[in-house]
Amino acid sequence: MSWDYSGNEKWTWDQIPLGAMTLDGGTATGHKTGDWRVQRPIWDTEKCKQCLICWMHCPDSSIKVAEQKMCGIDYEHCKGCGVCVVACPFGALSMISENDARELDEKEVQ
């Protein structure tokens, strides 16, 4: 992505691209919708059979895939809707509360 739109909150009228178009595609990745989450999907790599059904159904393009395999969840954007958990035929995804998840994260850091 080449278009630098940082600081756009302060842009004056003459800094906005013509007709308020964007000068690149996919700039929404800069919008971190992971903040919306109240529940978090957790991926169990043991149970995962790499069928990619979760990836196919994620409304937020937040199942990370590389070389035909799931390799994680994009928590910066995942809204925690749980569609992937329902879709998974192998019980490899489950939901936990975002608060609990954050506490766990902090413990890990410590």
Partner: peptide
């Protein structure tokens, strides 16, 4: 083709 970071409700069928 469709990057994350959009503001559709969580679980929306349209983006799927």
């Amino acid at each position: 083709r469709l990057s994350p970071g959009h503001s559709m409700c969580g679980g929306c069928g349209a983006t799927i």
